[in-house]
Amino acid sequence: MTQNYITSVNESIDRIIETISGLSEETIRWQPTNDEWSIMQIIAHIVEALPYWVEEIEQLVETPGKVWGRNHLHEGRLEAVKPETVNAISVNEMVKELEKVKQTVQAGIENLTEKQLSAEATSVNPNFGTKPLSFIIEHLIDGHVNKHEGQIQRNLSKLSSKSSN
């Protein structure tokens, strides 16, 4: 069951890497508005978030029923996308980190059993409530990277419409 998610995550990350490999540093670091992330910030978020969720899964396997998750104000999440943090990292370094994320996700979820995947626990995020562990994989790892892949495409479309004005 988890193999489909591993494949999906890998394909999304590969498409992101392929997309950014043809872009200038300026484009990758361009922020559409003060309220929107640059492509580099999006990638930095993926590099921080997916291992975070894999770690949450590992903790839930070790301690079934443990409260899991975080909100948008989580310190690690915010630190990863701060301009000072992102500006200190090269695009090539970030691409290497994205490659590592694929391995982290695979190692973290490939051997989970049906029993582990169906074990339920309550999230600190009231929007999620009580969910099976598979929810984290489906929504917060696979769906998450997929959503951010789309966000990168939206940034690029905003940039192309900006340059055509």
Results as ranks from 00 to 15, higher is better:
Glu56Asp: 11
Ile46Thr: 05
Tyr5Phe: 13
Ile39Trp: 08
Leu50Trp: 02
Leu60Asn: 01
Glu36Ser: 14
Ile57His: 00
Pro32Asn: 07
Ala44Thr: 03
Pro51Asn: 01
Glu25Met: 06
Gly76Ala: 08
Ile28Phe: 02
Leu73Arg: 09
Leu60Trp: 00
Ala44Phe: 05
Glu48Val: 01
Val47Thr: 07
Glu48Asn: 00
Glu25Trp: 03
Asp14Val: 14
Glu55His: 11
Ile13Leu: 09
Gly69Pro: 04
Ala49Asp: 00
Glu11Val: 12
Arg77Met: 09
Ala49Glu: 00
Glu56Ser: 07
Val81Tyr: 05
Asn34His: 09
Leu50Glu: 06
Val54Asp: 00
Leu73Asn: 13
Lys82Asn: 12
Asp14Phe: 14
Glu18His: 12
Glu79Gly: 07
Ala44Cys: 08
Ile28Cys: 04
Glu75Leu: 13
Asp35Val: 14
Glu62Thr: 02
Ser38Thr: 07
Thr7Cys: 10
Arg15Thr: 15
Ala80His: 01
Thr19Pro: 08
Glu58Leu: 03
His45Cys: 06
Leu73Asp: 15
Glu11Gln: 10
Lys66Pro: 03
Thr19Ala: 12
Thr33Tyr: 11
Lys66Tyr: 04
Glu25His: 07
Ile39Thr: 13
His45Gly: 08
Pro83His: 04
Gly65Asp: 10
Glu26Trp: 05
Gln41Asn: 07
Tyr52Gln: 05
Glu56Leu: 03
Gly22Asp: 13
Gly65Pro: 15
Ala49Ser: 03
Ile13Tyr: 03
Glu62Gly: 02
Glu62His: 01
Val47Leu: 06
Ile39Glu: 09
Gly76Tyr: 05
Glu75Tyr: 14
Ile46Ser: 02
Glu11Arg: 11
Thr27Trp: 08
Tyr52Leu: 05
Gly22Trp: 04
Glu11Gly: 12
Glu48Lys: 00
Thr33Met: 11
Arg70Lys: 15
Glu18Thr: 15
Tyr5Arg: 09
Met40Phe: 10
Trp30Tyr: 08
Glu11Trp: 11
Glu48Tyr: 00
Ile46Cys: 05
Asn34Glu: 15
Asn10Val: 06
Glu18Met: 15
Glu62Pro: 01
Thr19Asp: 05
Gly76Val: 05
Gln59Asn: 08
Gly69Met: 06
Val67Asp: 05
Thr7Gly: 08
Ile43Gly: 02
Trp68Gln: 05
Asn71Cys: 07
Ser12Ala: 13
Glu75Lys: 13
Lys66Thr: 07
Ile57Glu: 01
Glu55Ser: 13
Val61Glu: 01
Gly22Tyr: 14
Lys66Cys: 15
Leu60Ala: 02
His45Asp: 07
Pro51Ala: 01
Arg15Tyr: 15
Glu18Gly: 13
Gln31His: 10
Asp14Pro: 10
Trp53Met: 03
Thr27Asp: 11
Glu79Asn: 05
Trp30Ser: 08
Ile46Gln: 00
Gly76Phe: 05
